[in-house]
Design a protein around this nucleic acid. Structure first.
Length: 273
DNA sequence: CTCCAGGGTTTGC
DNA sequence: GCAAACCATGGA
């Protein structure tokens, strides 16, 4: 099917922005997975794309996933013309990035694993988890292991989980799996909470602190007021903003600005260090 | 060999 | 409330 997107939408930047760990490109075709759904997207022209799903699936699954109901071009251009010169530079570099609305369970486990790991190491652990405990499906292009369910990770046990290079995070992952296995609708139920309540509930999970909770809120629940402060963002706050966190003033678009800055720092590490 | 990676928990003050 | 020690593992 062919879709038209008249807004910022850069699949390569989305893939490189460090929010999803299982997206991939194979000779010009981009693949994304959420839950048990897989999509292949091939850019055709400036705003036209071939997608592997039906019109109904595009509307129901992928428009929310890519946050396409929200106009990023206007948000970005406002930042580019604002008084915050570093943010203007970051927004320009990050044009095309979108905040993905990913599966809460997968996002929870992925960001528990992410602590003190490099992005390649995170990807490797998650891939090993999927290959070891995820359901195998076949698409037109490849065979894929889905992200494991809570029941599967709980049943796997700590010993088998530790074979996925989880290190000291192994008990965190297993405990989270036990909790969601015992109450499968918990993460969906939490979607009804406001930002402060959701943050508080997420932080009750072992291995989820301030930063990881904010990542889950932003990358799974679409809470774009949240701007996770990791080591890179912290360096930017120190070097570019004299220690004063600039993101809260962006209110509803703080998380989008954070992602522009994070992407910018990944591409210009020498400038921030 | 040492240092670091999209941090969190525990302990002590 | 804040600071420091400690936490596995892989790659540079």
């Amino acid at each position: 099917m062919r879709v038209t997107i008249f807004d910022d939408f850069d699949l390569q930047k989305i893939m490189d922005s460090g929010q999803c760990f299982r997206c991939k490109s194979l000779n010009g075709i981009y693949r994304f997975i959420t839950g048990s759904e897989v999509i292949y997207i091939q850019p055709r022209s400036k705003s036209e794309y071939n997608v592997s799903c039906t019109a109904d699936e595009w509307e129901r699954i992928w428009i929310p996933y890519f946050d396409l109901e929200q106009n990023y071009e206007s948000i970005r251009s406002k930042a580019e013309s604002g008084t915050d010169s570093f943010m203007a530079k970051a927004a320009k570099a990050g044009a095309g990035i979108r905040i993905l609305r990913q599966d809460p369970w997968e996002t929870l486990i992925s960001f528990i694993i992410s602590q003190r790991k490099s992005i390649p190491a995170i990807k490797k652990s998650i891939e090993t988890l999927a290959d070891s405990f995820g359901k195998v499906i076949h698409t037109e292009h490849e065979t894929i292991s889905l992200f494991p369910t809570a029941a599967a990770l709980y049943a796997a046990g700590s010993v088998a989980l530790s074979d996925c290079s989880l290190g000291y995070r192994t008990p965190y992952v297993h405990a989270a799996a036990a909790q969601i296995n015992a109450n499968p609708s918990l993460l969906d139920d939490w979607a009804a909470l406001d930002d402060p309540s959701l943050l508080a509930m997420l932080k009750t999970i072992k291995g989820v602190g301030e930063k990881v909770a904010n990542c889950i809120m932003l990358f799974a629940y679409g809470r774009t007021s949240c701007a996770p402060v990791d080591t890179w963002i912290s360096k930017v706050i120190d070097k570019e903003y004299d220690g004063a966190n600039p993101f809260p003033q962006y209110e509803r678009t703080a998380g989008i600005m954070q992602q522009y800055v994070f992407y910018y720092t990944l591409k210009h590490k020498e400038e921030v260090q």
